[in-house]
Structures are given as structure tokens and as C-alpha cells.
Simulated scan of single mutants.
Amino acid sequence: MTAAHPDASARPGPAQPLHVLGALALELRGDAPVARASLAQAEAGELAAHMARDLASFVPDAAQLQLVTVGAHYDPVELLRPGWALHRELDQLAARAPGDASGRIIAFGAHEEQLPGALAPSPDYFGGPLRLVPFVLGGDADVVTRVGDRFERELIERGMAGAQTALAAQDTFGLQVEHARYLTAHDLAAMTALQYEHAGLALLWPVLETALLDPDGEAWLDAPPEPLLRYADGEARIALFEPRAWKQRYATDAPCDTPEGREKLERQHQHFQARQRQIAAVLAAHGVAVNFVHCAAETDARAPLLD
């Protein structure tokens, strides 16, 4: 993916730096625990050198660009956050390094088990089958564009990591790696969208995509029987209906004048509330702030979300 920070969908002007955003994706075997979440500086540098060689083997022009990465691995939700926050953090930390960036490798490692800035992986998301080592390629805009275009077209098909890279990642992190390959940020987003579709969350993806690509944009989820929410101003506002308002919107014709009818209605309401909690948890995992907004009966349900 070629992108300008912070809006990855925008085409930058001459003064804005272009970047190729991607990750080394480590597909793990079984449910083996995470042995090490981060590497010391020397180990991070060795892994980065392997990654640089791999990327240049796919597109030789990549060797002309600055590679910035970190000796740590993350869950996909930690990379897919508004404005590509983790990649942006790498880029901003690298910007402090003096000297010519052309062809340079910058790898951030842990000092006394602490990574710089906001690079620490969250232990809340350990245990997933896919772990990601993010990278940013930057430099001359024309070179970045060429490399980024090639990566977008080809990396998903032929981006297997070299054997030395896969072995280095496995040994240094203490992981059981089944496959190691490279993905662009767009590849990762597309894979996640497909996974969410299979998990019954397809209608939520446009909201997440807006937060990711256009954090200052707006998106709605307004498709009963799904919860109602609006993403705007960097947060998701979810309508919290009082019982009468919920029935008015979602169960208008449901009978409630018998014990059986009331019991069925209560089960439907509980299912709806569980769905709200699920959606709120997914949004929060992607770093989207979530606020619940009370909605009363006999009002336009969307109106409180616009305040």
C-alpha cells in the first residue's frame, strides 16, 4: 500500500511523504503460547536485515528505500486502527534519526524489555493464529510509488518470506511458525474484511474501513435488526434504546400481551444487547472509541447520534 499519513486513501501532494505500509505475517501452529513479545535491539536489527533482503528480492527498487520496523509482533487488530496508528508511530519515531534515509534500515528493539513510544504489543490479544511484524518503507516518492504498486499487485501471490527470515522469527520470538509471508496493509484489511464476513460482521466493516482510511470521516450502521451506530469525529456512537424504544424500532408487531409473547420478546432483547456488546468490543479492539447514547421512544432514533 502506498499511503500518505494520516489518511491512507488520499493522494499526497509534493510535500507529503509517501510510504509503503506492510507486515511480515507469521502464521502459527496450534495454540502454542507466545514466548517473547519483543526483541532486544541487536535481535531486532538482525530480523530487519532479513526482511530488507526479502523485500528487495521481490522488487529490487525496495533496496533504495528506508525500511523501518520493530522487533515485536502484533495481532491484526493492533495494525488495523484509525489512521494506521502503529505504522504512523514507527514513521514518527524513525523521523528523529539523523542522516540520509536512502536505503537505511531502522529497527526498534526493547531496552530493559521496554519498547520505545507506543510500540508495546497488547497482551490482551496474544494467542491468535496470526502475528504481524509491521514495516514502513519510505523515501523518494517515485520509487515508493513503483514499489508500492508492485507490492499491491504481486505480494499476496509471491510474498513468501525467505527460509532464514522465517527461522529467525521463530527462534528469536520463540514461536511455532507454520508459514511466514509478507502482506501490504491493504492485503491485511481485505483478509480481515473476509474473516468478518464469515463471522457475520460484514455490515460493520464499512464503519471500520472508514475509521482506518479516513479517521475524520463518517459512516453509519443503520440496518435493522443490527444495532444502530454512527462513526464520526473519531468515535462510534451506539444507540442505547430504552425497552419501549427498542420495541418500537425492532419488534413493532411482536405480541406482548401473553406470558409466552413477553418471554420471546425478552429473549430477542437480550440477543440484541449481546450483539451490541459484540460490536462495541470489535470496535474497541480496533482502537475506535465507543460511546453509548440513550434513545427514547417516539423519537427519530438517529437524532441522538447526531448531537
Rank of each mutant, 00 (worst) to 15 (best):
L175C: 09
Y182F: 15
V143L: 08
G99M: 01
A101L: 08
F173Y: 09
A232E: 09
L229A: 11
D31M: 11
A236D: 08
V177T: 08
Q92Y: 10
L80M: 13
E197W: 06
G127R: 04
P206M: 08
T145D: 14
A202R: 12
H179I: 13
L221T: 07
P6Y: 07
P215G: 05
A296R: 14
E266M: 13
D31T: 10
A101Y: 06
D253Y: 14
E112R: 15
A107R: 04
A232H: 06
P33L: 01
H294V: 12
H294N: 12
D140N: 14
G261H: 02
A32M: 02
H269E: 13
L167P: 01
P227Y: 08
Y250Q: 00
R267M: 12
A10I: 11
L132Y: 07
I156L: 14
F292L: 13
G162Q: 08
A44I: 05
P116F: 10
H269L: 12
A110P: 09
H186K: 13
L39A: 07
T252Y: 14
I279Q: 04
L26S: 03
R244T: 13
I279E: 01
I105N: 02
L55P: 03
V288F: 08
A48F: 08
A72P: 07
L21W: 03
T2K: 11
A118E: 14
T210A: 01
K247L: 12
R153Y: 05
D75C: 10
E235N: 03
H5N: 11
T145W: 07
P227E: 10
E89I: 01
T299N: 05
A168G: 10
S38G: 09
